[in-house]
Design a protein around this nucleic acid. Sequence first.
DNA 1: TAAATTATTAAACAATTATTAAAATGACAG
DNA 2: CTGTCATTTTAATAATTGTTTAATAATTTA
Lengths: 110, 110
Amino acid sequence: MKSGSVVEALAALAQPTRLAIFRLLVVCGPEGMAAGQLAEKLCVSPANMSHHFKTLSHAGLIVSRQDGRFVYYTANFSVMNGMLAYLTENCCAGNPDGCSVPDNASLKCN
Amino acid sequence: MKSGSVVEALAALAQPTRLAIFRLLVVCGPEGMAAGQLAEKLCVSPANMSHHFKTLSHAGLIVSRQDGRFVYYTANFSVMNGMLAYLTENCCAGNPDGCSVPDNASLKCN
DNA sequence: TAAATTATTAAACAATTATTAAAATGACAG
DNA sequence: CTGTCATTTTAATAATTGTTTAATAATTTA
């Protein structure tokens, strides 16, 4: 994963509403949740939510699908995992003896 | 870890220079690196670096210690690990069968 | 003590971000 | 079609953030 994409993903999650959206979608799993339902659950106006969805989508962290007149959003685990991998790699390259970073710092729900 | 602290840590890392600083310090391990050395390595002015150090310090991601006229910074793994734990917990609570999130999504260099 | 080195702070500004309200789009039911 | 519901877009504003320059603080060397 490129450094720029990681920064974008971190920035997308570095906001209370968006972090809450993402975590809620992580819990929802593959079915996801409708935009309006998320808005109601988080007490945020639809317009504001839509802006946040756009930011998360652009970062690749969530994916949308239309179902009737509802739009369902789901968490995209692979980008999240790429971000986690980037943050944990090359740990303590200076003193490899005292260090063991697991390769499995990731969400495994795909 | 509180949601607010996680947002602060994510925001601290969601900037190219600061992400580079943190990753460099992760690689350096417990000895850390002097502020000026980091500035030179990343081609960023000392004043600008100082602001970024402040942001990272306030988020708890780095720690400073004075050594002579140098200030050494080191990565604080526990806050980083708290952030990773927060991001990976409660994964797929909706369909626990198909999900196994490792408990060890962390840096293990302390 | 004075000068040099290392790092931080203060002030200013340009740029980005978050939020709101209003208008517009797209999908479906009658 | 027409009207309604769900969501997005546009436009505007307030708030935050990143960078630069200049000034300040702390430490060491001469």
